[in-house]
Design a protein around this nucleic acid. Structure first.
Length: 422
RNA sequence: GGAGAGGUGGCAGAGUGGUCGAAUGCGCCAGACUCGAAAUCUGGUUUGCCUGCAAGGGUAACGUGAGUUCGAAUCUCACCCUCUCCGCCA
């Protein structure tokens, strides 16, 4: 959510920002609503002031005066009720529109409408030369590592059962990642896999509606989370930190659920796009001054994970039109995957890190009190430490050998207890 | 799931219709005293929104929401949460 005052004072900037970010929103209607909303607040508060004044006079009034004041009060009460109803109706409309504004945009974010226009910053690692690389589905079939077919009986499509060494590898990756993050100050924390809708909204998600990617539970106000960023943001809702306690860093462990409505085709084969996966998510609460440095730290740690796993990847600076609502700036890591691009190999998104500045904090009401005693909204950031399913794809496909076996990255061997598959 | 008790400021804890944004204590901040500290004393100490150059003014908030009333922390209803006991249970 943007600061309504900021919008009022920077209308043209906000208008341009929406355009850059490819978000269609009727700003002129919003401005009208904002004016009306302020006007209604004035009206309602002045009636309340009158009512309070009459009530105060009541205390020392004689019986005759009392009768007069009561009559006055009754009258005020009626007009107040009708004006309050109008205010509430106006406020709902106003707030709904306000929530649709995307965050402001970092000045260095590349211009662009779609992910085609993201900027590749660098490629790290070497893509192994293989005469006949297999994709992860073929590899999993060969060694019986995952069962999609039987899963359809239990859950429908896009769920899976991981089996044997792949199940062990998933657990190993989680433990390895937590060990890597702990010395960097990230507290391991398992979170619920569900959250109330107002928490989802606070984190910038839309839990209900035709476009939603969120599973919600019928006859309730709770939904399955798509990332532990949601529960970790909610964890600190309505809190005020003293600045000495920041930054706070979490390594959040949860399952993630996504409906993936509207996705289909070659992008959604195998484990690449699934309805449920496990994830270790880094989440940071910090002061506004700290957030840019924290964002670079998150990117550095994401890169370290994939360097240690010996997986070639590229770093992508996400363009303005592809940022989504909450992010002020976003970097993705894309790993090499042989299964992409019709089997010719290509880059597949594997992590994503966003600086959300105060966008989520404003909605969740998370503040920090500075040394000056003034309270500001905190900044929140998130970054994928390891996203299972996709990390497993990258390991299987990049560590397959000419003889068809799969070598486990050295750093994982102590965690999973075996060196190769096949 | 059943029965009971309860939810008030950073914490503890008063307040049962108007004088209550809220006593008191603790904590915290500043000052005095002190070589310094402790103790003591004095003063200060919630937040959001609206308005104003500012000082200030207005409004809202006592778990949440609705209701009664001229007026609600206080009365009524619903819901949420916590605690104790019982039941069930991974």
């Amino acid at each position: 959510m943007l600061d309504p005052k900021y919008i009022r004072e920077h209308i043209e900037e906000v208008r341009m920002n929406c355009k850059r970010r490819n978000v269609r929103i009727d700003i002129d209607t919003y401005i009208e609503l904002d004016k009306k909303h302020l006007a209604m607040i004035h009206i309602v508060e002045s009636i309340r002031a009158e009512r309070n004044a009459v009530a105060a006079k009541m205390q020392n009034a004689n019986p005759d005066e009392r009768a007069v004041f009561i009559a006055q009060g009754k009258e005020l009460k009626e007009s107040l009720a009708s004006q309050e109803n109008e205010l509430v109706a106006c406020a709902v409309e106003w707030k709904n529109l306000l929530l649709q504004f995307p965050n402001l945009t970092h000045p260095d974010v590349p211009e662009g409408k779609t992910d085609d226009e993201n900027t590749e910053l660098r490629i790290v690692g070497e893509i192994k030369k293989l005469s006949q690389p297999l994709d992860h589905i073929a590899l999993c079939q060969k060694y019986d590592l995952v069962d999609f077919e039987r899963a359809t009986k239990v859950t429908g499509s896009k769920f899976y059962f991981l089996k044997g060494k792949l199940a062990r590898l998933e657990q190993a990756l989680i433990s390895y990642t937590l060990d890597l993050l702990e010395p960097e100050g990230y507290l391991a924390i398992t979170t619920p896999d569900i959250a109330k809708d107002d928490i989802l909204v606070g984190a910038g998600f839309q839990p209900r509606g035709p476009e939603t990617q969120i599973y919600s539970i019928e006859n309730s106000d709770i939904s399955l989370i798509g990332t532990s960023e949601i529960t970790l943001g909610g964890y600190h809702k309505d809190e005020t930190f003293s600045c000495a306690t920041l930054p706070i860093k979490y390594a959040g462990i949860s399952h993630c659920y996504r409906t993936e409505a509207g996705s289909y085709g070659r992008e959604s084969y195998g484990l690449y796009r699934v309805h449920q996966f496990s994830k270790v998510e880094m989440f940071i609460v910090c002061t506004p001054e700290q957030s840019e440095a924290m964002h670079l730290e998150l990117l550095r740690l994401e890169e370290r994970v994939f360097q240690q796993l010996e997986i070639p990847y590229r770093v992508v600076d996400i363009c303005s039109g592809d940022l989504g609502g909450p992010a002020y700036r976003k970097y993705d890591l894309e790993a090499w995957m042989w299964g992409r691009n019709m089997g010719k190999g290509g880059w597949g998104e594997i992590t994503s890190t966003s600086n959300c500045t105060d966008f989520q904090a404003r909605r969740l009401n998370i503040r920090v009190k500075g040394d000056d005693g003034v309270s500001h909204f905190v900044h929140t950031l998130n970054g994928t430490a390891i996203s299972l399913a996709r990390a497993l794809i990258a390991i299987l496909e990049n560590h397959q050998q000419e003889d068809g076996s799969i070598l486990i990255p050295q750093v994982l061997v102590p965690y999973c207890g075996f060196k190769k598959i096949g």
